[in-house]
């Protein structure tokens, strides 16, 4: 069985006529980086909240590492869309807050050392004692990532972590995230609006149709070799095949996607698989 297994997942908010999404079936393997792409309001955050345990599904099951997910737990680290740092704590204290919960038996020294190490990983060694309001948007998001990462979760859940950042900062943090994830074999589930970001980061991209009654329409495999480089990845002819496929889905097909029946497994596509791997120059 896969590391994370989701079966027949549906969510209907009270007082809503139709479920936000239904019949969601997919799996994530250990060490995989999966992005979910879909129009605003299709229920991406709701899916992530159910995976994190902050929200409950109306139907269906989530099984992670052989255990059913019930409520939030330390084996899943969450990076929130709005960073959600505590403004009265310094960057370091924000990270320590999580670390202390994860290892309550650790001494103050150990907690601090581990937190500093994690903040250094995201390039914030110089800003340990700054309060969130003294940090730029990108730095705040880095602290959020460090806080989630420091507890060494089995799975990292990111809700559009770079949505509010400018392109340059976004690129830098994407690189950092990619490095950390590669080095630690971290399993990641990430929401994004950005097609290029998803191709750069993901092993597979889940495409959701529009809500209400959103479905998992397709799973796109990104067979580009790693390590990937932001500056050269678009030289690969397969890149544009994948990109065109994603954009085509978002623009043309996401709305008209017909709802299949309960047991349906989404189609798996691998755009550009017919193109041979380019030879290194």
């Amino acid at each position: 069985m896969a590391f994370l297994h989701i079966e027949a997942l549906a969510k209907r908010f009270p007082q809503a006529d139709a479920p936000v999404f239904e019949h969601l079936n997919f799996s994530i393997e250990r060490g995989e980086f999966v992005c979910i792409l879909g129009h605003s309001g299709c229920g991406k955050t709701t899916v992530l909240n159910i995976l994190s345990g902050l929200d409950e599904a109306s139907a269906g099951t989530v099984v992670m590492d052989g255990r059913e997910v019930r409520g939030p737990a330390l084996d899943r680290g969450v990076v929130f869309q709005s960073h959600a740092l505590m403004p009265w704590l310094s960057a370091l204290k924000n990270v320590e807050f999580g670390v202390r919960s994860r290892w309550p038996e650790w001494s103050r020294r150990e907690v601090e050392a581990h937190s500093i190490k994690t903040l250094e990983m995201v390039g914030l060694a110089h800003a340990l004692h700054k309060k969130p309001h003294e940090l730029s948007g990108g730095m705040k998001q880095r602290v959020g990532i460090a806080r989630a990462f420091a507890i060494q979760p089995k799975m990292l859940l990111l809700d559009e972590p770079f949505g509010a950042l400018d392109a340059l900062t976004r690129g830098t943090i994407q690189d950092e995230l990619m490095q950390i994830v590669a080095a630690t074999q971290q399993t990641v589930f990430m929401i994004t609006h950005d097609v290029d970001e998803s191709i750069l980061l993901a092993d597979r991209i889940l495409l959701m149709s529009n809500g209400p009654r959103a479905q998992l329409a397709e799973i796109v495999e990104v067979a580009l070799p790693r390590p990937r480089d932001r500056h050269t990845i678009h030289h690969d002819p397969r890149y544009y095949r994948i990109r065109n496929h994603l954009v085509d889905f978002l623009v043309n097909r996401s709305r008209a996607f017909a709802a299949p029946e309960a047991g349906h497994a989404p189609a798996v596509v691998n755009p550009g698989s017919d193109i041979p791997e380019p030879q290194a120059a």
Binding site: G71, A73, G77, V78, A84, M86, W88, F97, S101
Partner: peptide, 27 residues
């Protein structure tokens, strides 16, 4: 108190008492 901060505490399995003192009280 912002929902986000309480959610952070929940995902970190912080006990209700510790949440009261370390999140809600300072907030």
């Amino acid at each position: 108190v912002r929902r986000d901060w309480l959610n952070v505490a929940r995902t970190l399995e912080v006990s209700p008492l510790r949440t009261a003192f370390t999140v809600i009280l300072p907030a």
